[in-house]
C-alpha cells in the first residue's frame, strides 16, 4: 500500500500555494494534516500529481474569537480546539462535536480545513458548519470568496472548491448566551465514523420557547444537511416531551440514509430520531 508517485512543494505564501495548485490541470491537491488524504493515496484512490503542503502558511493558523463569532484557521487541528478553553462558552457545540473526531494521534494532525475539503458525509466538522450556517473563506487564483456551508458540500467527498482554491478559514457565527445545544452521534466503536450524528441548537426566547432552531445531521446522506421539518417542529415551542416526540418522528421521516456494511437504512432512520431525542434532552437539561 505505497502511494503513487507525486511531486511535493512547500510554499512560503498563500499566493504561491494557489499558483502551484493552478499550475497542475486540476491534478494538484493541498495537504494540511493529511489524515484523510494520505489513506486515500495509500489505497491509490486519490492520485494527485502534486501535493502542496500548507504547513508554512502561518495565516491559516489560529482560533480567533470575537463578537462576530469563532474563526477557525484552516490549519487549526482538532487538538487545538480541544485545548482552547474559551470555546466551552464561545462555541460549546463545536467543542462537544470535536470530542468525537477520530483518535488521539489523528487529532494531533487532522485539521479543520482538511476535514472540510475532504467532505466525508459522517465527519463532525462539516456537520457543525452546516448546522451553524458557517461561512467558508477560500482563496483561489481569481481572489478570495466565501461560500455558505449549505452550498459548500455537494456530495460524498465532493465540495464547491475549485481545484486551485484553498480553504483559509471557517467562520462560525457568534454564539449568544441564550443558546441551547446538543450533539449526539453513535458509531460502532469509539472514534469510528458515526452511523448517524445530530448537531442542534435553538435560542430560548423570553417566554422559554425555542426559536431559531438549527438541526443538522451527519452520516445519513451523502453530505451533512439541516432538517427543516425538525426545526419547524421545535421553533416556537417549549422543548418538552411532546415537542421532543414530534421532533423524533419528523427527524426519522426526514432522512433517507443508505444501507451499508455497518448499518441498515431503517436502523439509521430510527437512530437519527433517537439521537435527535437525546440531543434535545441534553439541550433542554
Amino acid at each position: 500500500m505505497k502511494m503513487p508517485a507525486f511531486e511535493y512543494a512547500c510554499p512560503e505564501t498563500l499566493a504561491e500555494a494557489v499558483a502551484l495548485l493552478a499550475s497542475h490541470d486540476g491534478e494538484a491537491k493541498p495537504i494540511a494534516g493529511g489524515q484523510s488524504l494520505l489513506p486515500m493515496m495509500a489505497f491509490r484512490v486519490a492520485q494527485p500529481t502534486l501535493l502542496v503542503d500548507l504547513r508554512k502558511l502561518a495565516e491559516l493558523r489560529g482560533i480567533r474569537i470575537s463578537s462576530d463569532g469563532v474563526r477557525l484557521g484552516a490549519l487549526v487541528r482538532w487538538r487545538d480546539i480541544q485545548d482552547d478553553a474559551r470555546l466551552a462558552t464561545a462555541h460549546p457545540l463545536l467543542a462537544d462535536a470535536i470530542k468525537h473526531v477520530a483518535h488521539y494521534q489523528v487529532r494531533n494532525r487532522g485539521t479543520v480545513g482538511g476535514s472540510m475539503a475532504h467532505a466525508d458525509p459522517a465527519s463532525e466538522m462539516p456537520g457543525v458548519a452546516v448546522t451553524c450556517d458557517a461561512e467558508i473563506a477560500v482563496r483561489g487564483k481569481s481572489g478570495t470568496r466565501t461560500i455558505k456551508a449549505a452550498d459548500f458540500f455537494l456530495g460524498a467527498l465532493t465540495t464547491a472548491l475549485a481545484p486551485d482554491e484553498i480553504i483559509t478559514e471557517v467562520r462560525l457565527p457568534a454564539w449568544p448566551a441564550n443558546r441551547r445545544h446538543g450533539f449526539q452521534e453513535f458509531a460502532r466503536r469509539r472514534g469510528d465514523f458515526a452511523m448517524s450524528g445530530v448537531a442542534l441548537f435553538y435560542d430560548l426566547d423570553a417566554g422559554g420557547k425555542a426559536a431559531n432552531a438549527h438541526v443538522g445531521v451527519i452520516g445519513v446522506g451523502d453530505h451533512p444537511k439541516r432538517l427543516a421539518a425538525v426545526e419547524a417542529v421545535v421553533n416556537g415551542q417549549t422543548v418538552d416531551e411532546a415537542t421532543i416526540a414530534k421532533a423524533v418522528a419528523a427527524a426519522s421521516a426526514a432522512v433517507e440514509p443508505p444501507d451499508d456494511i455497518h448499518a441498515s437504512a431503517a436502523y439509521r432512520k430510527a437512530l437519527t430520531g433517537t439521537l435527535v431525542e437525546r440531543a434535545l434532552r441534553s439541550a433542554a437539561a
Binding site: 511535493y8 512547500c10 495537504i31 494534516g33 493529511g34 489524515q35 494520505l38 489513506p39 495509500a42 501535493l51 503542503d53 504547513r55 487538538r79 488521539y104 494521534q105 489523528v106 494531533n108 494532525r109
Partner: peptide
C-alpha cells in the same frame, strides 16, 4: 505511532518530507 514535536502521530499518515 511516533512522537513529532511532542505530539503522538501516526507515521504512516505523515510524509517524510513533512518532517523537515
Amino acid at each position: 505511532t511516533v512522537i513529532v514535536n511532542g505530539d503522538a502521530v501516526r507515521s504512516c499518515l505523515m510524509l517524510a518530507v513533512q518532517a523537515e
